[in-house]
């Protein structure tokens, strides 16, 4: 926002702005018994994202609006929220790409305990992530040198290395909403990243963990996770590959 001044002199014409209405699901645990909807009118530019509109509301209209964001460029995965009924990163969703003739509904992601406004308790999500051993499990190499990997072997798990742990997938999953014990798509994606890594020796351990009634077999292939992923990971495909690896007994 602060850089806008630098861009303007080159094109002196006035950039058209328009008014967007955001309806935000607010919840303050110290005041509210249950969440309530509140609407805000914000003047925005076609280049603005939902996150910019939230900033404008917080800075100019209501400082009590609470949400998480860190890098604001789709890398840190802090600002996953439900925008017009679908999980999106607020920092990667342009307002002009939404239907601006209607109000924009913004609410917290579903299935995790709501703490305040757009913030949920992410601990159950990270607990599942920790359970699948999200680190390289390998002993020392014989000659003490590096672990070599061919480009083909690297490509095998490339898709699942892109995860930023924003929880957009896990909190879009109908199974996770009703059954919080389910590991959820994000944990399985991160297990997939190591199970199919040729340098890793812990595939058996991870397949054992996920071969559980709360593991991969809870997946009902609704594809909400694949649609929600801001990094375009084929999440349901990764889960299906883990299912097949369990059936075959090897990665």
């Amino acid at each position: 926002m602060s850089n806008a001044v630098m861009d303007k002199p080159a094109v002196p014409e006035v950039i058209p702005s328009f008014t967007a209405t955001l309806i935000i699901r607010r919840f303050d645990p110290e005041v509210d018994d249950e969440p309530r909807w509140q609407d805000f009118d914000v003047e925005v530019y076609p280049t603005d994202r939902v996150l910019d509109a939230l900033h404008k509301i917080k800075w100019e209209q209501d400082g009590s609006l609470t949400f998480r964001r860190s890098c604001a460029h789709g890398v840190c995965g802090s600002d996953a929220m439900r925008i017009n009924g679908r999980n999106r990163l607020a920092c990667k969703t342009l307002i002009k790409d939404l239907d601006i003739s209607k109000p924009i509904y913004v609410e917290a992601i579903k299935g995790l305990p709501l703490e305040k406004d757009l913030i949920v308790d992410m601990e159950p999500f990270f607990e599942s992530y920790r359970q699948i051993n999200p680190f390289l499990m390998a002993g020392a190499t014989k000659d003490g040198k590096e672990r070599k990997q061919s480009p083909v072997e690297r490509a095998r798990f490339d898709d699942t290395t892109k995860c930023i742990l924003c929880a957009a997938c896990t909190s879009s999953c109908p199974v996770f909403w009703t059954d919080g014990q389910y590991f959820g798509p994000a944990a399985i994606v991160n297990a997939h990243r190591f199970i199919f890594d040729s340098r890793d020796e812990g595939a058996g351990v991870r397949l054992d963990i996920l071969n559980d009634k709360e593991g991969v077999w809870r997946c009902r292939t609704t594809f909400n996770c694949s649609e929600a992923c801001p990094r375009g990971i084929e999440v349901t495909k990764a889960i299906a590959e883990v299912k097949q690896a369990i059936m075959r007994g090897k990665a």
Binding site: P35, R82, N84, R86, Y105, K110, S172, T222, F223, N224
Partner: peptide, 10 residues
Amino acid sequence: GTVYRGREGM
């Protein structure tokens, strides 16, 4: 909250 707007899969 609103109904989640899933697509064909959901």
